[in-house]
Amino acid sequence: MAAVSLDHGLILAAILFVIGFVGLLTRRNLIVALACIEIMLNAAGLAFVVAGARWGSADGQVMFLFVLAMAAAEVAVGLALAIRFRQSLGRLDVDDADEMKG
């Protein structure tokens, strides 16, 4: 099986990251926003793995495990926030959360 080249892997990671970022900017649903953050995190994780493979080091895969753990924690907190958000505002529109504006 031919190894995936570093360039291809990084380009894919960048595309994933931009997709997540654009989604975060354009979608107002909180759940979708959380999903977009997941995509961006995975883009970062992919970059780690690809880089690790390029230099033959296990560090990249270890870092990916950390990213996974962090993503799990983030989802737990994020979903709890979403529930509270929904309970207090009745909707899941992030634009509703603008009470702190100066």
Binding site: D95, A97, E99, M100, G102
Partner: peptide, 18 residues
Amino acid sequence: ALSASQNGQLRVYIGVAG
């Protein structure tokens, strides 16, 4: 001017940060 930038819109903040 500075007060106007603090509009509470999360997506604008993210955009600016990006």
